[in-house]
Write a protein that binds this DNA or RNA. Structure first.
Lengths: 286, 286
DNA sequence: CGAATAGTTGAGGTGGCTCAAATTTTGTGG
DNA sequence: CCACAAAATTTGAGCCACCTCAACTATTCG
């Protein structure tokens, strides 16, 4: 308990000092600290408690700048010498068919790596687009290499990160392939709640439009809209525009029959209580 | 050219000698050599040319035995101290919804690792089932660890393997989410052709039933059947039972608008000519 | 040769799609 | 702060790709 907060605090402090060297103004410094803090939280959600490694890694993240909604953060294509981290905002990984239809593979939140696959594979045919104003950082592959050599736990975290991503793809495939629209959409929303909470963002407010969700759930925007309205009438979602607001978590989890084990989240930074979402036939606690 | 065959030959020799110690009878020995050879071909398809590493790895693969169609090779659940390799037969990775619907995530062929994710993640909620009589081998995680420490290239190969798997999941999600049944099924079949060829198995004969394919493409068995019949009438598939036989590769690739880049296959063991499937808007060759 | 599995066929139903237009919300420049 | 443009959401209507159910046939295997 005290332990968690402890590490978080030390992590942020480390950044304020090392990352910015005390040079920036108050406002920039604060936002930077918060931004890099997301990376720290992400690592913690992966079950890594290697403060030293984190302190070594984070100063190597160079803030690259801001990208506006609709623009690509990472484009299709060949290898690069560095990888991208989302520091602020919401993004999505996607691909487009020959006939122009877009499928979103995963949503990305602060702390998420955008193109770790390129670190290994060089060639990649998917892209990452900003779904809101985003700020991103980059880290050079050689730096990443050095860190993982020096702090094996950090390398493990990256492995886990990749594995969890793959696990998300599989769950989505199950979701899109086998569940009817309502359950499918409910599942999708549940996942976003949990993942947002895991990096310390309030999961009841999901920063995605209905159109974004439609491309993720593989339903038409029209049908997404109708389903959202159904969920509102059930008292589960709130009447909000440009984002989804969950007002009745439990009932949503119930409709979805959601089980978040596939996310492999180890610890939660969420101040919104214990991870109830794991409830369903989850942990062998007693 | 000569190079390829060279390595393959040496690999097989290494096995016959090291793996079996010259102890087994002719028939068992030969099938063993062939089985482990698949693992070698798999590594080569990943673009790894580390013969030493392979020679070190392969003797550590213990043949575990035979599993019959329908049975699970790897069940849902917690961590193990070893990973499983498919040596012979066809398998699939899958998961089932709360309402009993099955989604297949990928098909697996000789040489494929079944549960590399458990090496990293401990917990995994998907399973691997045999789709034919399968023989599998196991390798202990500590051995894997030693090998990858000693031969970094081998570790790279495992990374790549995981990344390519994830890439397949994404493509399938695009496929299931955004393409109509005919194109979807054509894509699916194209992928199997290419992947089989890549490990030296004739890709024109795909060892999958229509039911298996249906659970992968997320269409009902009835609709799969009707689509297969359509493809037959187009002269693309042959009239065959319990497997799919492709008689007109190019036309299938054309219907699918298939582009196999996402498979990241580096070299091909296939004696059936150059990888034409890569043709479509593929490499910047000239 | 029977039992099981895989494939085939017909008929009827529907979940979700497309098209198209209206309305609301948000962002932008003046 | 307003007016306009752009983006997001909403609504209605018609339709069709694919589904389910159910029975029948062909194949495989013990």
């Amino acid at each position: 308990m005290g332990h968690k907060g402890d590490i978080a605090a030390r992590t942020e402090r480390a950044f304020a000092v090392v990352g910015l060297g005390g040079a920036g103004g108050v406002s920039l410094g604060a936002s930077m600290t918060r931004a890099l803090g997301a990376v720290g939280r992400k690592f913690r959600s992966l079950g890594i408690d290697c403060e030293e490694g984190l302190q070594a890694l984070l100063p190597l993240v160079k803030v690259k700048g801001s990208i506006s909604r609709g623009a690509d953060i990472v484009a299709t294509g060949g290898s690069t010498h560095c990888s991208t981290v989302l520091l602020n905002g919401t993004a999505c990984r996607y691909k487009v068919t020959e006939s122009g239809r877009r499928q979103i593979f995963t949503f990305q939140y602060p702390g998420d790596f955008c193109d770790l696959n390129r670190y290994v594979l060089a060639e990649s045919d998917d892209a990452v687009a900003a779904l809101s104003e985003c700020s991103v950082g980059i880290i050079r592959h050689e730096d990443l290499e050095r860190i993982t050599r020096q702090y094996p736990e950090m390398g493990q975290a990256l492995w886990r990160n990749v594995m969890v991503e793959a696990s998300i793809f599989r769950e989505w495939l199950l979701n899109v392939g086998q569940r009817p629209a309502l359950a499918r959409i409910a599942n999708l929303i549940c996942e976003q709640m949990v993942r947002l909470d895991a990096v310390g963002i309030d999961g009841t407010v999901i920063p995605l439009t209905q159109v974004d969700l439609a491309d993720a759930a593989a339903v038409s925007p029209v049908h997404m809209n109708r389903t959202v309205q159904d969920l509102r009438e059930l008292g589960i979602l709130a009447r909000s525009s440009r984002y989804i607001e969950v007002v009745h978590r439990d009932r949503l989890v119930d409709i979805a029959k959601f089980n978040g084990r596939y996310l492999n989240i180890h610890q939660t930074t969420s101040p919104w209580g214990p991870p109830r979402w794991m409830s369903r036939e989850a942990a062998p606690l007693h």
